[in-house]
Simulated assay, not measured.
Amino acid sequence: MPENRVSYRVPKAHGPKITVIGGGHGLSTMLRGLKNYTENLTAVVTVADDGGGSGMLRQDLGMPPPGDIRNCMEALANTEPLMSQLMHYRFSEGSLAGQSFGNLFLAALNGISPSFDVAVSRMSEVLAITGRVLPVTTADVQLEAEFENGATVVGESKIFYCKKKEDCRIRQVRLLPEHSKALPAAVAAIEDADMIVLGPGSLYTSIIPNLLVDGVVEAIQRSDALKVYVCNVMTQEGETEGYTASDHIAAIFAHSAPGLFDLCMTNSSPIPKGVAARYAEEGAELLKCDEAACNALGVEIINRPIATVSNGYVRHHPGHLARELVLLHAERSVRVAGDGFDYRKDTYHVERKDR
């Protein structure tokens, strides 16, 4: 019998309004794929990072950390190859060793701009990015973690080491100061979205910090968008050892609100045994999808082939993940006939075998 297929065509300029919330490399990886399907993209990015080059600039210049935001802008950039190389360049010697030129460029723009979000907007113009990148807040926030044994640590970059030392789970994380206000543009992007995507990324240090900013959870709750959490493929050493998919969902709900989303996308692609064994040596493993427990939390599992192995590391595949998210939106949304779209030009085509 011929294979059945599901296929959709939509102009990129009129593609779904997708707002993604998170941080780290997982978010930028997803954005690289999504920009091929829609121009109506907004990334709302955490500013709780205090390690590496971002932490140095934060400490020296008193600015929000630029690293995660820069990564997202690079993922969405439409620039000449030379500019792309320049943004990626890291100094190898002297006092700037390890620092990214992209971070320094954003720091310079911050110095001549009235606010950090304006600096981000100006850099977005220089890079001609698809969509928008927004800091979740412009407040100077730090992340504090409390462990199940009562120990606490302040600083996103210190949580990994403290968890290894205490050898117990994280009970909760909080922002210092509490009640930092969300950027109004970020709130508006969430409220206006057709689809809201949480993750992928580090549970306690990339995703949850956004939800602790005043106004973000309420905006998600008010939105009529399709709401999806993209779960990590592997557990994360120093953060989520031993966690299942339902553990991730329960932690997000505990830090925000029960039922914040009702869809969770997990990976169905096989992971080579040798790769899994190397992860196990580092205390990480393939994340178990305990579907019944997820359903008990009111969350439906969407299991799709969205992972790949690159240089021995398990990562979300930007193209596969973006395709499955766009298909999910198309399948669960109703597009009105005769809406004025011109499907003959500027379109993307997405298809997959019908399951």
Rank of each mutant, 00 (worst) to 15 (best):
P2H: 11
R5S: 13
S7D: 07
P11D: 01
P11V: 03
G15C: 09
K17S: 13
I21L: 04
I21D: 02
G23A: 09
M30H: 03
L34G: 04
Y37W: 06
T38I: 14
E39D: 15
E39L: 13
T42L: 02
A43S: 06
V44D: 00
V47L: 08
L57E: 05
L61K: 02
G62I: 04
M63N: 11
P64L: 06
G67H: 01
I69E: 03
R70V: 09
C72L: 10
M73E: 07
E74K: 14
A77V: 00
N78F: 00
L86N: 02
H88Q: 15
F91M: 10
G98L: 05
S100D: 01
F101A: 14
N103E: 08
L104H: 04
F116P: 03
F116M: 04
A119Y: 02
L127C: 02
I129V: 15
R132K: 13
L134K: 01
A139F: 11
A139Y: 08
D140P: 12
N149V: 03
G150N: 11
G155A: 09
I159S: 11
I159V: 14
I159Q: 11
E166R: 02
E166G: 03
E166W: 06
E178P: 08
E178A: 12
K181M: 14
A182W: 10
A182R: 08
A186Q: 00
A189T: 04
A193D: 09
D194E: 11
G201I: 00
G201F: 04
L203V: 04
Y204V: 01
T205G: 10
I207C: 01
I207G: 00
N210E: 10
L212K: 13
V213Y: 09
V230K: 05
V233N: 04
M234Q: 07
Q236E: 12
G238R: 06
G242V: 04
A254I: 01
N267R: 00
I271K: 06
G274F: 05
A293M: 10
N295M: 14
V299L: 12
I301E: 11
I306E: 08
S310Q: 15
N311V: 04
G312D: 06
H316N: 03
H317E: 15
G319I: 01
V326W: 01
L327H: 00
L327C: 01
L328M: 05
S333D: 10
R335C: 13
A337Y: 10
G340K: 01
G340F: 00
H349G: 00
R352N: 07
R355K: 08
